[in-house]
Computed example of a mutant assay.
Amino acid sequence: MNRISKEHLSNLRKKFLPGTRVELVRMNDPYTKLEEGTTGTVVMVDDIGTIHVKWDCGSCLGIVYGEDSCTII
């Protein structure tokens, strides 16, 4: 499990507010059907830094801190 400092977690929560639109850059999950460029809406950032996203395609897979990447659009 990845460790995240309280300060970095606070910064993630400020940057990825609920309702923020994001685009998937990279997901380190060989089983996901999400592709680079998929867009969605942030639901929340949890206590371990996972950015929970409601993807426009219907998926709700989270962006795992330190493993995956997304950008604000």
Results as ranks from 00 to 15, higher is better:
residue 1 M to S: 14
residue 1 M to K: 12
residue 2 N to P: 13
residue 2 N to D: 11
residue 3 R to S: 07
residue 5 S to L: 06
residue 5 S to C: 02
residue 5 S to K: 06
residue 5 S to E: 10
residue 6 K to V: 04
residue 7 E to G: 04
residue 7 E to N: 14
residue 7 E to L: 14
residue 8 H to N: 10
residue 8 H to D: 10
residue 9 L to S: 07
residue 10 S to G: 08
residue 11 N to V: 01
residue 13 R to Q: 15
residue 13 R to S: 07
residue 14 K to H: 08
residue 15 K to D: 00
residue 17 L to N: 03
residue 17 L to C: 02
residue 18 P to C: 00
residue 18 P to G: 00
residue 18 P to V: 04
residue 19 G to D: 07
residue 20 T to H: 03
residue 20 T to S: 12
residue 21 R to F: 00
residue 22 V to C: 02
residue 22 V to H: 06
residue 23 E to I: 10
residue 24 L to Y: 01
residue 24 L to G: 03
residue 25 V to A: 06
residue 25 V to R: 04
residue 25 V to C: 08
residue 28 N to Y: 09
residue 28 N to S: 14
residue 29 D to P: 01
residue 29 D to F: 10
residue 30 P to D: 10
residue 30 P to H: 12
residue 30 P to T: 08
residue 31 Y to P: 02
residue 33 K to G: 12
residue 33 K to M: 15
residue 33 K to P: 05
residue 34 L to K: 11
residue 35 E to W: 02
residue 35 E to H: 08
residue 35 E to I: 13
residue 37 G to V: 12
residue 37 G to R: 11
residue 37 G to C: 13
residue 37 G to L: 09
residue 37 G to N: 05
residue 38 T to L: 02
residue 39 T to Y: 04
residue 39 T to K: 15
residue 40 G to F: 04
residue 40 G to T: 01
residue 41 T to V: 15
residue 41 T to P: 03
residue 43 V to L: 10
residue 44 M to W: 03
residue 45 V to N: 11
residue 46 D to R: 01
residue 47 D to F: 12
residue 48 I to F: 12
residue 48 I to D: 06
residue 50 T to A: 14
residue 52 H to W: 14
residue 54 K to Y: 04
residue 54 K to W: 01
residue 54 K to R: 15
residue 54 K to I: 06
residue 55 W to I: 09
residue 55 W to E: 01
residue 56 D to N: 14
residue 56 D to M: 08
residue 58 G to I: 07
residue 58 G to L: 10
residue 59 S to W: 05
residue 59 S to I: 06
residue 59 S to C: 12
residue 59 S to Y: 08
residue 59 S to A: 15
residue 61 L to I: 15
residue 62 G to W: 08
residue 63 I to E: 02
residue 63 I to T: 10
residue 63 I to W: 03
residue 63 I to P: 01
residue 64 V to T: 14
residue 65 Y to E: 11
residue 65 Y to W: 15
residue 65 Y to D: 13
residue 65 Y to F: 15
residue 68 D to V: 08
residue 68 D to G: 09
residue 68 D to N: 14
residue 70 C to V: 15
residue 70 C to S: 11
residue 70 C to F: 07
residue 71 T to L: 13
residue 71 T to S: 12
residue 72 I to H: 05
residue 72 I to M: 13
residue 72 I to N: 05
residue 72 I to P: 05
residue 73 I to K: 14
residue 73 I to E: 12
